[in-house]
Simulated scan of single mutants.
Amino acid sequence: MTKWYLRATLLVALLLLAACQRGMDPVAFHADGRPPQLSDWHVVEVRGNKLVLNQGVVPYDLNTPLFTDYAHKLRTIWMPKGTSAKYNPTDTFDFPVGTVITKTFYYPKTSSGKFTDVARTYDSSRDFAGEGLDLSNVHLIETRVLVRRESGWAAIPYVWKDDQSDAQLARTGAVIPLTLVDDKDAREDFNYVVPDESQCASCHAQDWVSRKVHPIGPKARHINRDYHYASGTENELEHLMKVGYLTGAPAPDQAPRNANWADQRASLDARARAYLDINCGHCHNPNGAANTTALTLDLTAPEDRHLGICKPPVAAGRGTGDHFFDIVPGSPDDSIVTYRMSSADPGEMMPELGRSTVHREGVALIKAWIAAQSGGCVAIH
Protein backbone atom coordinates (compact mmCIF):
# COMPACT_ATOMS: atom_id res chain seq x y z
CA MET A 1 0.00 0.00 0.00
CA THR A 2 1.59 3.32 -1.11
CA LYS A 3 2.10 6.39 1.04
CA TRP A 4 0.02 8.33 -1.51
CA TYR A 5 -2.92 5.97 -1.02
CA LEU A 6 -2.68 6.21 2.79
CA ARG A 7 -2.57 10.00 2.66
CA ALA A 8 -5.53 10.12 0.27
CA THR A 9 -7.53 7.77 2.50
CA LEU A 10 -6.75 9.89 5.57
CA LEU A 11 -7.73 13.06 3.72
CA VAL A 12 -11.06 11.55 2.66
CA ALA A 13 -11.74 10.43 6.25
CA LEU A 14 -10.97 13.91 7.57
CA LEU A 15 -13.20 15.52 4.95
CA LEU A 16 -16.05 13.17 5.80
CA LEU A 17 -15.61 13.92 9.50
CA ALA A 18 -15.61 17.64 8.84
CA ALA A 19 -18.72 17.29 6.69
CA CYS A 20 -20.49 15.52 9.54
CA GLN A 21 -19.55 18.28 11.95
CA ARG A 22 -20.31 21.15 9.55
CA GLY A 23 -23.25 23.14 10.81
CA MET A 24 -22.95 21.96 14.43
CA ASP A 25 -22.67 24.72 16.98
CA PRO A 26 -19.93 24.29 19.59
CA VAL A 27 -20.74 22.05 22.55
CA ALA A 28 -22.79 24.03 25.07
CA PHE A 29 -22.15 23.77 28.80
CA HIS A 30 -25.39 24.67 30.61
CA ALA A 31 -24.35 25.81 34.06
CA ASP A 32 -27.89 25.38 35.38
CA GLY A 33 -31.37 24.34 34.30
CA ARG A 34 -32.62 21.46 32.18
CA PRO A 35 -32.44 22.18 28.43
CA PRO A 36 -35.61 20.84 26.72
CA GLN A 37 -33.81 19.09 23.82
CA LEU A 38 -30.69 16.95 23.71
CA SER A 39 -29.55 18.99 20.71
CA ASP A 40 -29.33 22.05 22.99
CA TRP A 41 -26.08 20.55 24.28
CA HIS A 42 -24.59 20.05 20.78
CA VAL A 43 -22.69 16.97 21.97
CA VAL A 44 -24.27 14.40 19.66
CA GLU A 45 -26.74 15.34 16.93
CA VAL A 46 -28.50 13.74 13.99
CA ARG A 47 -27.03 14.72 10.64
CA GLY A 48 -28.61 13.00 7.65
CA ASN A 49 -28.93 9.36 8.59
CA LYS A 50 -26.23 9.40 11.25
CA LEU A 51 -25.83 10.32 14.89
CA VAL A 52 -22.55 12.23 14.87
CA LEU A 53 -20.19 13.46 17.57
CA ASN A 54 -19.22 17.12 17.72
CA GLN A 55 -15.63 18.26 17.57
CA GLY A 56 -13.83 17.53 20.84
CA VAL A 57 -16.35 14.88 21.91
CA VAL A 58 -14.46 11.68 22.74
CA PRO A 59 -16.19 8.28 22.67
CA TYR A 60 -15.24 5.53 25.10
CA ASP A 61 -16.38 2.09 26.23
CA LEU A 62 -16.02 -0.17 29.27
CA ASN A 63 -14.27 -3.50 29.71
CA THR A 64 -17.45 -4.89 31.24
CA PRO A 65 -20.57 -2.75 30.78
CA LEU A 66 -23.66 -2.45 32.94
CA PHE A 67 -26.51 -4.61 31.63
CA THR A 68 -29.59 -2.67 30.47
CA ASP A 69 -32.09 -4.99 28.77
CA TYR A 70 -29.56 -5.93 26.07
CA ALA A 71 -29.32 -2.29 24.91
CA HIS A 72 -26.15 -1.17 23.13
CA LYS A 73 -24.54 2.07 24.31
CA LEU A 74 -22.52 4.94 22.90
CA ARG A 75 -20.62 6.79 25.64
CA THR A 76 -18.93 10.17 25.22
CA ILE A 77 -16.91 12.72 27.22
CA TRP A 78 -16.42 16.42 26.49
CA MET A 79 -14.56 19.02 28.55
CA PRO A 80 -14.08 22.78 28.13
CA LYS A 81 -10.88 23.77 26.36
CA GLY A 82 -7.87 23.88 28.65
CA THR A 83 -9.36 21.65 31.35
CA SER A 84 -8.71 18.02 32.20
CA ALA A 85 -9.65 15.30 34.68
CA LYS A 86 -7.26 14.09 37.36
CA TYR A 87 -6.44 10.40 37.36
CA ASN A 88 -7.49 8.22 40.30
CA PRO A 89 -6.44 4.56 40.41
CA THR A 90 -9.58 3.32 42.19
CA ASP A 91 -12.39 5.86 42.08
CA THR A 92 -14.08 8.05 39.47
CA PHE A 93 -11.67 10.57 37.98
CA ASP A 94 -11.85 14.14 39.31
CA PHE A 95 -13.55 15.88 36.39
CA PRO A 96 -13.53 19.68 36.02
CA VAL A 97 -16.60 21.90 36.09
CA GLY A 98 -18.05 22.02 32.59
CA THR A 99 -17.57 18.31 31.82
CA VAL A 100 -20.44 16.76 29.87
CA ILE A 101 -20.72 12.96 29.77
CA THR A 102 -23.42 11.28 27.66
CA LYS A 103 -24.63 7.72 27.26
CA THR A 104 -26.93 6.92 24.35
CA PHE A 105 -28.91 3.68 24.59
CA TYR A 106 -29.96 2.05 21.33
CA TYR A 107 -30.71 -1.30 19.69
CA PRO A 108 -29.85 -2.79 16.33
CA LYS A 109 -32.93 -2.96 14.11
CA THR A 110 -34.49 -6.26 13.04
CA SER A 111 -35.54 -7.41 9.58
CA SER A 112 -39.24 -7.18 10.54
CA GLY A 113 -39.34 -3.43 9.92
CA LYS A 114 -41.45 -2.92 13.05
CA PHE A 115 -40.37 0.12 15.03
CA THR A 116 -40.88 -1.67 18.36
CA ASP A 117 -38.89 -4.78 17.32
CA VAL A 118 -35.27 -4.58 18.48
CA ALA A 119 -32.47 -7.11 18.13
CA ARG A 120 -31.27 -9.12 21.09
CA THR A 121 -27.65 -9.41 20.02
CA TYR A 122 -24.12 -8.62 21.10
CA ASP A 123 -23.08 -7.95 17.50
CA SER A 124 -22.31 -4.24 17.09
CA SER A 125 -20.52 -4.51 13.72
CA ARG A 126 -23.28 -2.63 11.86
CA ASP A 127 -23.94 -0.01 14.56
CA PHE A 128 -21.27 2.53 13.80
CA ALA A 129 -20.67 5.14 11.13
CA GLY A 130 -17.20 6.35 12.04
CA GLU A 131 -17.40 7.12 15.74
CA GLY A 132 -21.12 7.91 15.50
CA LEU A 133 -24.10 5.65 14.81
CA ASP A 134 -25.70 4.54 11.56
CA LEU A 135 -29.42 5.25 11.96
CA SER A 136 -30.32 2.95 9.09
CA ASN A 137 -29.24 0.07 11.31
CA VAL A 138 -30.03 1.21 14.85
CA HIS A 139 -33.01 2.49 16.83
CA LEU A 140 -32.19 5.23 19.37
CA ILE A 141 -34.03 4.96 22.71
CA GLU A 142 -32.62 7.46 25.20
CA THR A 143 -29.58 9.58 26.00
CA ARG A 144 -28.56 10.36 29.57
CA VAL A 145 -26.49 13.47 30.26
CA LEU A 146 -24.23 13.86 33.30
CA VAL A 147 -22.98 17.42 33.62
CA ARG A 148 -20.44 18.69 36.17
CA ARG A 149 -21.63 22.02 37.54
CA GLU A 150 -20.30 24.21 40.33
CA SER A 151 -22.77 22.56 42.71
CA GLY A 152 -21.82 19.04 41.60
CA TRP A 153 -22.99 16.52 39.02
CA ALA A 154 -26.52 16.64 37.60
CA ALA A 155 -28.20 13.72 35.80
CA ILE A 156 -30.61 14.66 32.99
CA PRO A 157 -32.50 12.02 30.91
CA TYR A 158 -33.69 12.52 27.32
CA VAL A 159 -35.96 10.22 25.25
CA TRP A 160 -35.60 10.03 21.47
CA LYS A 161 -38.56 11.00 19.31
CA ASP A 162 -40.12 8.34 17.09
CA ASP A 163 -38.73 10.09 14.01
CA GLN A 164 -35.23 9.92 15.59
CA SER A 165 -34.60 13.60 14.87
CA ASP A 166 -33.86 14.64 18.46
CA ALA A 167 -34.38 13.59 22.07
CA GLN A 168 -36.66 15.39 24.50
CA LEU A 169 -36.21 16.06 28.21
CA ALA A 170 -37.87 13.33 30.31
CA ARG A 171 -37.47 14.43 33.94
CA THR A 172 -40.13 11.95 35.07
CA GLY A 173 -38.72 9.11 32.98
CA ALA A 174 -40.67 7.03 30.47
CA VAL A 175 -41.90 3.50 29.76
CA ILE A 176 -41.37 2.26 26.19
CA PRO A 177 -42.91 -1.07 25.09
CA LEU A 178 -40.42 -3.05 22.98
CA THR A 179 -39.91 -6.60 21.76
CA LEU A 180 -36.52 -8.30 21.84
CA VAL A 181 -35.98 -10.56 18.82
CA ASP A 182 -33.04 -12.96 18.73
CA ASP A 183 -31.31 -14.50 15.72
CA LYS A 184 -33.71 -17.47 15.82
CA ASP A 185 -36.70 -15.09 15.76
CA ALA A 186 -37.65 -15.86 19.37
CA ARG A 187 -39.53 -12.87 20.79
CA GLU A 188 -39.70 -11.36 24.27
CA ASP A 189 -42.00 -8.43 25.01
CA PHE A 190 -40.84 -6.05 27.73
CA ASN A 191 -41.17 -2.49 28.94
CA TYR A 192 -37.97 -0.49 28.57
CA VAL A 193 -37.92 1.89 31.55
CA VAL A 194 -36.15 5.25 31.27
CA PRO A 195 -35.33 6.29 34.86
CA ASP A 196 -36.48 9.62 36.21
CA GLU A 197 -33.98 12.10 37.64
CA SER A 198 -34.25 10.79 41.21
CA GLN A 199 -33.65 7.21 40.05
CA CYS A 200 -30.59 8.34 38.09
CA ALA A 201 -29.30 9.98 41.25
CA SER A 202 -29.96 6.90 43.41
CA CYS A 203 -27.58 4.76 41.33
CA HIS A 204 -24.97 7.48 40.80
CA ALA A 205 -24.74 8.44 44.49
CA GLN A 206 -21.61 6.52 45.44
CA ASP A 207 -21.66 7.95 48.97
CA TRP A 208 -25.10 7.48 50.53
CA VAL A 209 -24.32 10.00 53.28
CA SER A 210 -23.63 12.97 51.03
CA ARG A 211 -25.77 11.50 48.19
CA LYS A 212 -23.74 13.46 45.67
CA VAL A 213 -23.97 12.17 42.11
CA HIS A 214 -20.84 10.83 40.39
CA PRO A 215 -20.19 9.03 37.10
CA ILE A 216 -19.84 5.25 37.42
CA GLY A 217 -18.05 4.16 34.25
CA PRO A 218 -15.05 6.54 33.92
CA LYS A 219 -12.75 4.70 36.33
CA ALA A 220 -9.32 3.39 35.42
CA ARG A 221 -10.24 -0.29 35.73
CA HIS A 222 -13.28 0.11 33.46
CA ILE A 223 -11.73 2.14 30.62
CA ASN A 224 -8.23 0.67 30.55
CA ARG A 225 -8.88 -0.92 27.14
CA ASP A 226 -8.53 -0.25 23.42
CA TYR A 227 -11.04 1.73 21.36
CA HIS A 228 -11.38 2.13 17.60
CA TYR A 229 -11.18 5.92 17.22
CA ALA A 230 -11.40 7.73 13.91
CA SER A 231 -7.63 8.22 14.16
CA GLY A 232 -7.01 4.51 14.79
CA THR A 233 -7.06 1.99 17.64
CA GLU A 234 -5.62 3.28 20.91
CA ASN A 235 -5.84 2.61 24.63
CA GLU A 236 -8.52 4.85 26.14
CA LEU A 237 -6.38 6.07 29.03
CA GLU A 238 -3.57 6.96 26.63
CA HIS A 239 -5.99 8.65 24.24
CA LEU A 240 -7.54 10.79 26.99
CA MET A 241 -4.04 11.82 28.07
CA LYS A 242 -3.07 12.65 24.47
CA VAL A 243 -6.09 14.89 23.82
CA GLY A 244 -5.61 16.66 27.17
CA TYR A 245 -8.70 15.28 28.91
CA LEU A 246 -6.73 13.39 31.59
CA THR A 247 -3.60 14.04 33.64
CA GLY A 248 -1.53 11.81 35.89
CA ALA A 249 -2.38 8.41 34.38
CA PRO A 250 0.35 5.76 34.35
CA ALA A 251 1.10 3.50 31.42
CA PRO A 252 -1.84 1.15 30.76
CA ASP A 253 0.12 -1.89 31.97
CA GLN A 254 0.60 -0.11 35.31
CA ALA A 255 -3.09 0.81 35.70
CA PRO A 256 -5.86 -1.47 37.03
CA ARG A 257 -7.92 -3.29 34.43
CA ASN A 258 -11.19 -5.17 34.84
CA ALA A 259 -11.77 -8.27 32.76
CA ASN A 260 -14.26 -8.39 29.91
CA TRP A 261 -17.07 -10.51 31.35
CA ALA A 262 -17.56 -12.29 28.00
CA ASP A 263 -13.87 -12.93 27.26
CA GLN A 264 -13.32 -16.66 27.67
CA ARG A 265 -9.56 -16.08 27.78
CA ALA A 266 -9.91 -14.39 31.19
CA SER A 267 -10.35 -16.43 34.35
CA LEU A 268 -13.86 -17.23 35.55
CA ASP A 269 -13.18 -15.40 38.82
CA ALA A 270 -11.95 -12.24 37.05
CA ARG A 271 -14.96 -12.21 34.71
CA ALA A 272 -17.49 -12.74 37.51
CA ARG A 273 -15.93 -10.13 39.80
CA ALA A 274 -15.87 -7.59 36.95
CA TYR A 275 -19.54 -8.31 36.22
CA LEU A 276 -20.59 -7.88 39.86
CA ASP A 277 -18.40 -4.77 40.19
CA ILE A 278 -20.08 -2.81 37.38
CA ASN A 279 -23.63 -4.15 37.81
CA CYS A 280 -23.86 -4.21 41.59
CA GLY A 281 -20.83 -2.50 43.13
CA HIS A 282 -22.08 1.08 42.74
CA CYS A 283 -24.71 0.31 45.42
CA HIS A 284 -23.17 -2.67 47.22
CA ASN A 285 -20.07 -1.00 48.63
CA PRO A 286 -19.19 0.30 52.10
CA ASN A 287 -20.53 3.80 51.28
CA GLY A 288 -23.27 2.98 48.77
CA ALA A 289 -27.04 2.84 48.92
CA ALA A 290 -26.97 -0.87 49.88
CA ASN A 291 -24.29 -0.56 52.58
CA THR A 292 -26.79 -1.60 55.26
CA THR A 293 -26.94 -5.09 53.69
CA ALA A 294 -23.29 -5.73 54.61
CA LEU A 295 -22.95 -7.24 51.12
CA THR A 296 -20.02 -5.76 49.19
CA LEU A 297 -19.88 -6.58 45.48
CA ASP A 298 -17.30 -4.15 44.16
CA LEU A 299 -13.65 -5.14 43.74
CA THR A 300 -12.73 -4.09 47.29
CA ALA A 301 -14.52 -7.10 48.79
CA PRO A 302 -12.39 -10.02 50.00
CA GLU A 303 -13.76 -13.44 49.13
CA ASP A 304 -15.46 -14.07 52.44
CA ARG A 305 -18.70 -12.93 54.07
CA HIS A 306 -18.18 -9.41 52.75
CA LEU A 307 -18.74 -10.88 49.28
CA GLY A 308 -21.79 -12.78 50.50
CA ILE A 309 -20.15 -16.18 50.96
CA CYS A 310 -22.19 -17.99 53.62
CA LYS A 311 -23.60 -14.61 54.72
CA PRO A 312 -27.25 -14.62 55.86
CA PRO A 313 -29.37 -11.77 54.45
CA VAL A 314 -29.86 -8.73 56.69
CA ALA A 315 -33.55 -8.45 55.82
CA ALA A 316 -35.86 -11.40 55.25
CA GLY A 317 -38.66 -11.43 52.71
CA ARG A 318 -39.58 -12.93 49.39
CA GLY A 319 -36.44 -11.45 47.86
CA THR A 320 -34.50 -14.28 49.50
CA GLY A 321 -36.49 -16.98 47.71
CA ASP A 322 -36.44 -18.85 51.04
CA HIS A 323 -32.67 -19.27 50.72
CA PHE A 324 -30.42 -18.85 53.73
CA PHE A 325 -27.26 -17.30 52.29
CA ASP A 326 -26.28 -14.72 49.69
CA ILE A 327 -23.75 -17.13 48.14
CA VAL A 328 -23.49 -20.84 48.86
CA PRO A 329 -20.17 -22.16 47.45
CA GLY A 330 -20.81 -24.90 44.93
CA SER A 331 -24.58 -24.33 44.99
CA PRO A 332 -25.75 -21.45 42.75
CA ASP A 333 -29.39 -22.55 42.92
CA ASP A 334 -29.29 -22.18 46.71
CA SER A 335 -27.79 -18.67 46.56
CA ILE A 336 -29.83 -15.50 47.02
CA VAL A 337 -27.61 -13.54 44.60
CA THR A 338 -28.45 -15.72 41.60
CA TYR A 339 -32.08 -16.04 42.69
CA ARG A 340 -32.51 -12.27 42.56
CA MET A 341 -30.54 -11.93 39.33
CA SER A 342 -32.81 -14.53 37.74
CA SER A 343 -36.01 -12.63 38.57
CA ALA A 344 -37.71 -9.77 36.72
CA ASP A 345 -40.22 -9.27 39.55
CA PRO A 346 -39.76 -5.72 40.94
CA GLY A 347 -40.12 -7.06 44.49
CA GLU A 348 -37.36 -9.63 44.05
CA MET A 349 -34.94 -8.65 41.32
CA MET A 350 -31.48 -7.21 41.62
CA PRO A 351 -30.42 -4.74 40.47
CA GLU A 352 -33.66 -3.03 41.44
CA LEU A 353 -33.35 -0.43 38.69
CA GLY A 354 -32.07 -0.41 35.14
CA ARG A 355 -33.61 -3.56 33.73
CA SER A 356 -36.93 -5.22 33.00
CA THR A 357 -35.50 -8.45 31.57
CA VAL A 358 -33.19 -11.13 32.90
CA HIS A 359 -29.62 -11.12 31.62
CA ARG A 360 -29.42 -14.82 30.86
CA GLU A 361 -25.74 -14.85 30.00
CA GLY A 362 -24.88 -12.81 33.09
CA VAL A 363 -26.82 -15.18 35.33
CA ALA A 364 -25.07 -18.14 33.70
CA LEU A 365 -21.67 -16.54 34.40
CA ILE A 366 -22.37 -15.95 38.11
CA LYS A 367 -23.87 -19.42 38.48
CA ALA A 368 -20.76 -20.96 36.95
CA TRP A 369 -18.57 -18.88 39.27
CA ILE A 370 -20.47 -20.01 42.38
CA ALA A 371 -20.56 -23.62 41.18
CA ALA A 372 -16.77 -23.58 40.88
CA GLN A 373 -16.32 -22.50 44.50
CA SER A 374 -15.49 -25.18 47.04
CA GLY A 375 -17.00 -25.60 50.47
CA GLY A 376 -20.51 -25.09 51.74
CA CYS A 377 -22.58 -23.33 54.36
CA VAL A 378 -24.22 -24.58 57.54
CA ALA A 379 -27.78 -23.32 57.93
CA ILE A 380 -28.79 -22.16 61.38
CA HIS A 381 -32.46 -22.81 62.09
Rank of each mutant, 00 (worst) to 15 (best):
A186V: 12
M24E: 12
N235K: 00
Q264C: 02
D263T: 00
V52W: 03
R271D: 15
H239R: 10
D277S: 11
E45T: 00
C20M: 11
N137R: 12
E197Y: 03
G376E: 12
R225W: 08
I309F: 12
T292K: 15
V147H: 11
Y106L: 00
N224Q: 06
H239M: 10
L146V: 06
F95W: 01
W153A: 03
A205D: 04
S84F: 04
S267E: 08
L178M: 08
L169E: 09
I278F: 01
K103D: 06
I156S: 14
V27K: 04
E352M: 13
G217D: 13
C280V: 02
A372C: 14
S231W: 00
I141V: 15
D91V: 05
S343R: 03
T121G: 05
A154Q: 09
M1A: 09
A315R: 09
S331K: 15
I366F: 08
G321Q: 04
G82L: 03
Y106G: 07
C310E: 12
R22Q: 09
N49I: 01
R120T: 07
I370T: 07
V12R: 03
W208E: 15
R271E: 05
A71W: 06
C203D: 04
V138N: 03
D166Q: 01
R360I: 11
Q168A: 10
L15S: 01
R47W: 01
E303V: 11
H239Y: 15
Y5D: 14
W160E: 07
P157A: 07
R355I: 07
K311F: 15
L16N: 00
R149L: 10
R360T: 11
Y229S: 06
T102Q: 05
K311N: 14
A301F: 07
D277A: 14
D277K: 07
S124R: 13
F324R: 13
T172C: 09
L146Y: 09
V363H: 14
S343N: 04
G130L: 12
V44M: 07
V209P: 12
D123N: 15
P250W: 00
R47I: 01
S343D: 10
A379M: 11
W4F: 14
M341E: 05
I101K: 04
L51T: 02
S267V: 09
K367D: 13
D298I: 04
D263E: 08
A129Q: 01
V181F: 14
T121I: 08
V43D: 09
P252T: 01
A85E: 06
A270Y: 06
Q206S: 10
E234H: 11
T2K: 14
K114R: 15
S165H: 00
H222M: 14
T292E: 13
E238H: 01
A262D: 03
V213G: 06
A259V: 10
D182P: 13
P256S: 06
V57R: 00
Q206P: 04
F67Q: 01
A201P: 04
Y275P: 14
E352G: 13
Q168P: 02
A301C: 05
D277H: 10
